[in-house]
Design a protein around this nucleic acid. Structure first.
Lengths: 127, 127
DNA sequence: GCATCTATGTGACAAGTGTCGCGCAGGTGC
DNA sequence: GCACCTGCGCGACACTTGTCACATAGATGC
């Protein structure tokens, strides 16, 4: 049962994705400038993210490191789909135009995401 | 202090907006087919929405009626902006293309919303 | 006038979230 | 060997959210 991340959790994922693998301390140091959280908070959030299946904790050389279990495209795609459906009452996928300008996705990724969403919505399209 | 509606609250707003003014019972009857909630739940949700300043309760001929305090465009605009910023890391407004196909907004409204978002983001644009 | 139905007020409760702090255990420096 | 720092497990607490049920006060039918 992997649920979507909350906005808070997403902030940590955003620092983890580009790196691939980081320790709690590293994630915290990178995120804290924006979040302003205490280290405890970062660690607790990481703990809950692990419970949700968003990331995995892997001990490496003695210290605990975290790796993302779901890709950026997968997570963002889920979030976007949910938003489109629940807020906008939109069946089909959002067009790639919606993602242009995003600091989270470069052009290639935006296209990839659009393709992903299209595939998804075809798979579950209504009769 | 008017905060944004949760997805649950949004479902009730969506039945209220087109009508303008409805009693709790009417809102419930219209929403329950989708939500499956008990009447208690609908009423409690309405109560919290009132506390948030999303709607106002006005006694009319003895019974309590509810009217939206924030327009559809205002609310959806806020939600969209928040989503774009927090999830997509996007500064500017979402293009109207994102809204086409939405069952919530007709074409005119989609354009209006785009205009609104544009104005908003100009108003607070960074230096 | 009494039984009934409906509208409202209010309380309850479990999850989920945001945010920490405490305390122990294992290295490190001297 | 002792003092100290850091990583980590765990507990705590307040708030929001989703979901109801209970009980009381009018309004209605006859």
């Amino acid at each position: 049962m992997q649920s979507d991340p909350s906005e808070t959790e997403l902030r940590l994922l955003k620092v983890l994705w580009p790196e691939g693998r980081l320790s709690a301390r590293e994630i915290h140091d990178a995120a804290a400038v924006d979040t302003g959280w205490s280290f405890s908070t970062t660690r607790k959030t990481l703990e809950r993210m692990e419970a949700k299946g968003l990331i995995a904790a892997e001990p490496l050389h003695g210290i605990k490191t975290f790796v993302p279990l779901r890709s950026k495209l997968d997570v963002v795609g889920g979030l976007v789909t949910r938003f489109a459906r629940n807020v906008l009452d939109l069946d089909g996928p959002l067009p790639a135009a919606a993602f242009t300008g995003s600091r989270l996705l470069d052009e290639g990724e935006a296209e990839e995401l659009e393709q992903l969403l299209r595939d998804l919505s075809e798979g579950e399209g209504d009769a």
